[in-house]
C-alpha cells in the first residue's frame, strides 16, 4: 500500500501547488505556513520521535524542523515535492541531533544506544504489546542511518524512490540497508 495520504493533505482541502503558491506570496506566507505545520506536524513528529525516543527532545527537534522549513522556503525548488523536501529536512535534523548528542557528552555509540533504550523504557506507551516493545529495543541497536531507513520504509511506508529523494541515497543502497535492518531485527527478536 502506497502512502497516498502524503500526496494529498489529510487535514486540508488545499492542494500542494496552491499551498506552495501561497507560501511564496509574502502576504499569505504566514497563514499558509500555519496550514503547512498543521498538515505535516504529526508525520514529522512521528518520524522524529522514533529517532530520538524522548518526547521533549522530539518536540524540540520537530520545532527546529519547521523553523528550518520556514527559513528555507524561498530556496524550495518546485521540481521536488513539498513533503519529500520537509522529510529531508526532518531526517537531516534527526541525524544531526543524534550526532551532536554524542559529541556533546563524548558518548561512544554503545552508550547512546543504552541511553535511548533507557529513555524508551521510561516512556508511556499506547501499545502494551510485548513484541512491539522488543522491536523498538531491537531498532535502537541499529546505526542511526539504518534505523532511519527502516522507519521510513516500515512505519512511514514510503517508496524507495521517495526515500532516495529524501536521503539523497541510491535506491539500491536503500534496499540493501532496509533488508539488512530487517535481518538484524529478526535475529534480535529471535534471540530474546
Amino acid at each position: 500500500m502506497r502512502s497516498n495520504y502524503l500526496k494529498k493533505y489529510p487535514d486540508s482541502d488545499l492542494e500542494e501547488k496552491e499551498l506552495i503558491q501561497r507560501l511564496k506570496n509574502p502576504e499569505s506566507k504566514r497563514i499558509a505556513f500555519h496550514s503547512l505545520v498543521r498538515i505535516y506536524q504529526r508525520k514529522v513528529y512521528a518520524l522524529v520521535r522514533k529517532m530520538v525516543i524522548d518526547h521533549s527532545e522530539a518536540d524540540d527537534v520537530t520545532q527546529e524542523v519547521f523553523l528550518k522549513v520556514w527559513l528555507h522556503l524561498d530556496g524550495f525548488k518546485e521540481n521536488s515535492r513539498l513533503y519529500t523536501w520537509i522529510y529531508r529536512i526532518a531526517t537531516n535534523e534527526c541525524l544531526a541531533y543524534l550526532r551532536k548528542k554524542r559529541i556533546r557528552f563524548f558518548l561512544p555509540i554503545g552508550d547512546v544506544e543504552q541511553q535511548l533504550i533507557t529513555s524508551l523504557e521510561r516512556q508511556n506507551y499506547i501499545s502494551g504489546d510485548e513484541i512491539e516493545s522488543k522491536l523498538q529495543k531491537a531498532l535502537l541497536k541499529l546505526p542511526d542511518k539504518q534505523r532511519l531507513v527502516f522507519n521510513l520504509k516500515y512505519y512511514e511506508d514510503l517508496s524507495y524512490e521517495d526515500m532516495a529523494e529524501i536521503t539523497q541515497t541510491s535506491i539500491g543502497a536503500l534496499k540493501a540497508s532496509y533488508h539488512l535492518a530487517v535481518k538484524k531485527i529478526e535475529n534480535s527478536l529471535m534471540s530474546d
Partner: peptide, 24 residues
C-alpha cells in the same frame, strides 16, 4: 503497525502555536 509512543493530550493543538511564535 501500531502507534507505540504516547503523546501528551492536546500536543498537536499547541505545537503550531509554539512554532508560529518562534518564527523570525
Amino acid at each position: 503497525r501500531k502507534d507505540y509512543f504516547a503523546i501528551p493530550e492536546g500536543y498537536f493543538d499547541e505545537l503550531p502555536i509554539k512554532i508560529m511564535e518562534r518564527l523570525p
